[in-house]
């Protein structure tokens, strides 16, 4: 028996957890490779033309895993009131279920109705015939390990804030930022040019969630809250912000616009769709870096004004 895990959307939030739990339970797992042109094209062909790029990408990954017995597609609704997710997260399971013929393992996170992660894993155990006790043990152990790992990565991320180099905060959803085709070219370019890249998702989520109230009082998208909270937490130390969003991301379209109107920092708003070429992107990044360097007096070019 083989479980397929698409390397997109949910993978960047729960991937490590799934891999750890399934490894502890000795279940064979196949993770789809990093996004490449082939996978993206698969997704674009199968999906609706107005869907957001990340969802198209996800559908591509699911289609790639056709030969697996099961595909893991969770549904994430909310983390208590005011911590909703995007509506695409509510719909993916049903969309995938109607698009492909594979069997699907599904669980639902809906804390308002008392459906939490552990219950979700019990559901998985039900399908795969794993005892509750075994599942609970594997889950709790993995959660504990992951917590420590995350603390370390958060510490690393925050340490970058004290460096002398140019510091740019990347504000974007991890499924965009870390994706091989969507966000990777941007990050690579920044790294090559000796810039400290700080990720918005590697902050303490609770803290960032609280901090976001300073920018927007009534925002109810959990992931966006954490993203903009990171701006508040780091705004004194960074030189600029790059917003990465996929076209046409629902929450980002409103939230990023609001944040851009409220912050007082240089920013670059990058929207990526399926036809963007790297050339235009790099030109924009280059000029953005030039401006930042000129502003900080680190460049030979004098600032325009």
């Amino acid at each position: 028996m083989k479980i397929g895990i698409p390397r997109s959307l949910y993978f960047y939030y729960y991937g490590d957890l799934w891999l750890k739990v399934f490894k502890k339970l000795n279940i064979e797992v196949k993770v789809s490779p990093k996004t490449n042109k082939e996978i993206m094209d698969l997704g674009i062909n199968k999906s609706n033309d107005e869907m957001c790029l990340s969802l198209k990408n996800y559908i591509g990954h699911v289609c790639y895993l056709k030969d697996c017995d099961y595909i893991l597609v969770p549904r994430i609704d909310n983390f208590k009131t005011c911590n909703q997710t995007c509506t695409n997260f509510l719909a993916t399971y049903d969309i995938i279920n109607n698009l492909v013929d594979n069997k699907i393992i599904n669980y639902n996170i809906d804390l308002n109705k008392g459906e939490d992660e552990l219950k979700g894993f019990y559901k998985i155990g039900n399908i795969l015939k794993i005892k509750k006790k075994q599942m609970k043990k594997a889950y709790l152990e993995s959660i504990k390990e992951l917590k420590e790992e995350r603390l370390i990565s958060i510490k690393d991320n925050l340490k970058k804030l004290d460096s002398d180099k140019l510091k740019i905060l990347i504000v974007g959803h991890p499924y965009n930022t870390y994706d091989e085709l969507i966000g990777k070219p941007i990050i690579d370019y920044l790294n090559d040019n000796g810039i400290q890249v700080i990720y918005s998702n590697l902050f303490d989520s609770e803290e960032a969630n609280q901090a976001s109230r300073e920018l927007s009082k009534d925002l109810y998208f959990k992931y966006n809250k954490e993203n903009i909270g990171s701006i508040i937490l780091s705004q004194d130390k960074i030189d600029g912000i790059i917003f990465i969003s996929s076209f046409p991301c629902g929450p980002d379209s409103l939230v990023n616009e609001l944040v851009i109107r409220k912050i007082d920092l240089p920013y670059l708003n990058i929207i990526i769709d399926d036809q963007s070429s790297d050339t235009g992107l790099i030109t924009r990044l280059e000029s953005f870096i030039d401006i930042l360097e000129a502003k900080n007096g680190k460049s030979s070019i004098s600032p325009c004004r």
């Binding site: 999906s47 609706n48 957001c52 719909a91 049903d94 969309i95 109607n98 698009l99 046409p248």
Partner: peptide, 12 residues
């Protein structure tokens, strides 16, 4: 255009 929930409903 860009109504996310309805776009999700369309394939179904």
């Amino acid at each position: 255009s860009f109504c996310t929930p309805e776009i999700g409903a369309m394939p179904i």
